[in-house]
Design a protein around this nucleic acid. Structure first.
Lengths: 320, 320
DNA sequence: CCCTTGCGGTCAGGTCCTGTCCGCAATCCG
DNA sequence: CGGATTGCGGACAGGACCTGACCGCAAGGG
């Protein structure tokens, strides 16, 4: 085995078990212990902090360093990571959507097909994003495809359903992916319209990279996120939710986590405010809190609460 | 730069962009193009399928191969992966809990401290597992610590709250982690009791590996999962939920995903059954479905539905 | 105090890595 | 069809570097 291959294997071994006695490592790598020590030294020179313990039951150990070492994953771990990232990218986790998608595309690109199949088999086991209530049910695989095409400057072809419901095929030069609220958009140069467009990802179907690369154009204004937002003058339907909850702020905060702002109003009550483009979340939150509350706004939320109250009330009456 | 370091860097470059012209790569690695070709060859010999395209706008590309290549992640990607895995390990994703934890512990072990801090800063942004309603709110960092101790045969010390509410310090030799239902257990040899025990992870606090390694004992019976289950004769409180929903099976299935079994009852209705040890999930599901329904069992669910109906009804009355 | 295990210097031999030079092949474009 | 571009790989010479062997030393654990 060549020296470089041995380095990779050594890194891999150091990642699977915490402690390795030097002799054991040398035997596995089929080199003398002296050479092993030299390999370890080389790793250290490359910045991977390999810690050593002397004496009986001593050994080597890979510690946290200044930079991420190359991760050597086995099949199952890779699958777990992809499944987790899909959940995160799908909007279950706040704050890292786009990074998840980037990581996802990187991993998926080099993932053996048999592992991709295993991931797909697990696809529908994730928690539905808004538990049914009309969440766009994004396909994380689609997101990964788009992100990859953006990164690699590859043309994309996909079907697109316009607001009016028309279905048409588009070919574009993708530029950036943007997430606004809980929605994904692709900013791209439309090759048939000869203009910049932003596409809602949940309206796209069957996206495939054509394999044709292109020289990136400059987006007028430069800021893709701004471009998308400016195109959304047709009111993004965001609701400002404000609810007075009759429970102490601390416990409410514990239950809604970061999904809403909780401010103490002093008298053992608190005010819960959220931004949502879908009333499903506030509804879930109100149910999860389980305390008495008054809806301050919006009126639509009152209607929604009323609807569920009626629904549940009828169910109880029918059962008893 | 040494040859091995260059190989790693080459792998890294190939993972960040899809296509690389040979000249560009050679320049970045500061070697001649001939040497670059040799490096690429070496990678191929190691099993990484590097595809090359000739002619104008040709270049190199890392494809999916038979095995996962070492992943070279930048900081943000690493953080995204850990956050995703935490969500998955916390029970948001069905079917890969334990693998997620393994992957998590592997990554966290080698992750630079500054990245760990970033992950912690994002911790509470994940969706609360059951949106408040008493989900054990597992600490994924704790899970990772335990998994690592199991893997590396390191003794653990932690605080444990018994069913009776007593708090005591334990020192154990961890054996395996088991997940039953939505709960995590650690099977370990208790060094003070001198016997095997299974510990509920959500009752543990401040677990730390002591650094002392031990020779693994053999678990009587061998099957850790079986051991935990046998210890759970004290009825795990599981509810069999069965609800008749007045909506067509297809749409209901779309809304609950894999979180419940949906069987068509023929007359435009369907029966939704779930197993749950917490009634929060079925409640969320019923709200998410938004159709009329009759609760068949358990009686506790009817009470719960009644409670929320009352809660919501009062809120509406107070507002109008 | 002894044993185990890691550390690192030195040396000789030889592997293998590198840059140069070359002709060839595949692909794209006009 | 021809030219330009880009990847492919053989041959070769010089030298960098890798390896194993041998050594004495240092650090833990019992």
């Amino acid at each position: 085995m060549s020296a470089s291959a041995r380095m990779l294997q050594l890194l891999s071994l150091l990642q699977t078990h915490r402690y390795w006695p030097g002799g054991e490592l040398a035997r596995r790598l089929e080199v003398s212990e002296r050479t092993l020590r030299r390999d370890v030294d080389r790793l250290r020179e490359l910045g991977y902090p390999v810690h050593a313990v002397r004496g009986v039951a001593g050994g080597y150990q890979l510690q946290a360093g200044a930079a991420m070492p190359p991760l050597l994953l086995d099949d199952e771990e890779a699958v777990a990571i992809v499944v987790g990232l899909r959940a995160a990218a799908g909007g279950m986790v706040e704050g890292i959507d786009d990074t998840s998608v980037r990581a996802l595309s990187k991993i998926v690109q080099v993932m053996p097909p048999r592992l991709r199949r295993r991931v797909d088999a697990l696809r529908s086991y994730t928690v539905p994003a808004v538990f049914g209530s009309g969440g766009p049910t994004l396909d994380a695989g689609l997101l990964a495809t788009l992100a990859q095409a953006c990164r690699d400057d590859e043309r994309l072809r996909f079907g697109y359903r316009t607001r009016e419901g028309d279905e048409a095929e588009r070919t574009v030069e993708p530029h950036t992916m943007v997430t606004v609220g809980r929605r994904w958009y692709l900013v791209a140069w439309d090759l048939t319209r000869h203009d910049w467009r932003s596409f809602r990802v949940d309206r796209m179907t069957d996206a495939t990279a054509t394999g044709v690369r292109f020289r990136p154009r400059e987006l007028p204004g430069g800021d893709a996120a701004e471009y998308v937002k400016s195109g959304l003058r047709s009111a993004p339907q965001r609701h400002h939710v404000s609810v007075l909850v009759h429970a102490d702020a601390e416990s409410v905060r514990g239950r809604v986590g970061r999904w809403g702002e909780v401010t103490d109003t002093g008298d053992g009550s608190c005010r819960l405010t959220m931004e949502a483009d879908d009333l499903g979340w506030p509804m879930f939150a109100l149910m999860g809190i389980g305390a008495e509350f008054d809806v301050e706004e919006p009126a639509e939320l009152v209607e929604e609460v009323d609807r569920v109250a009626g629904l549940f009330g009828r169910a109880v009456r029918r059962t008893s």
